[in-house]
Design a protein around this nucleic acid. Structure first.
Length: 180
DNA sequence: TTGGTGATTGTTTAT
DNA sequence: ATAAACAATCACCAA
């Protein structure tokens, strides 16, 4: 065993300082921390900034909400669904989560493409320093094509799914008759 | 009227 | 590598 996979890194998992509800309200903090972004000049909002893909848990959560709502039409509290979903999520077996993870992984790939385009744009803006009006004449057509085309993500895609997960997701959209 | 909060976990990103 | 923030959702309360 020479190498051992231990790797230096702290083998100890002492990470997890924030165990509790986490920052509690990141929202509030986020607002306040604008300084980090506007430390430069103006907090430029990134309209192209791709939102983070839903994690496996969120994918499951969406569906779970549906079920939960059906069972508890009265309960509409987000916290109620979150707790129930989290509890069940941990109770779910890895195989059950597999399909959710698969979808999440896929979304992650697309996110990589968006990031590529976004990243490129950021660089473009950075070039000027101030994005601004005169640059606007450049116009931004959706420039996300070649680069995003089949760009293999450098991130190693571990395909350790020995289990054949049916990837055929048949979405039957049965019209739910909205009873009038 | 508007929007922020609450709660879950996972992923993403920046330092 | 680690810490922190953020991803969706929906009803309610405060200013």
């Amino acid at each position: 065993m020479k190498g051992g996979k231990g790797k230096g890194a702290t083998s100890k998992e002492a990470l997890k300082p924030v165990d509790d509800r986490k920052v509690g309200k990141r929202k509030a903090a986020a607002k306040v921390d604008k300084s980090s972004a506007l430390k430069a000049k103006k907090a430029k909002k990134d309209p192209n900034k791709p939102k983070r893909p839903a994690s496996a848990f969120f994918v499951f959560l969406e569906e779970f909400r549906k079920t939960f709502k059906k069972d508890n039409p009265h309960v509409t509290a987000v916290s109620a669904v979150g707790k129930a979903a989290g509890e069940k999520w941990k109770s779910m077996s890895p195989d059950e989560k597999a399909p959710y993870e698969a979808k999440a992984a896929k979304g992650k790939v697309e996110y990589g493409k968006l990031m590529n385009a976004y990243n490129k744009k950021q660089e473009d803006i950075a070039d000027d320093g101030d994005e601004e009006s005169d640059k606007s004449k450049s116009e931004v057509h959706d420039e996300e094509e070649d680069e995003a085309n089949g760009e293999k993500k450098h991130q190693s895609v571990e395909e350790e799914e020995e289990e054949e997960v049916e990837e055929e997701e048949e979405e039957e959209e049965d019209d739910e008759d909205e009873d009038d």
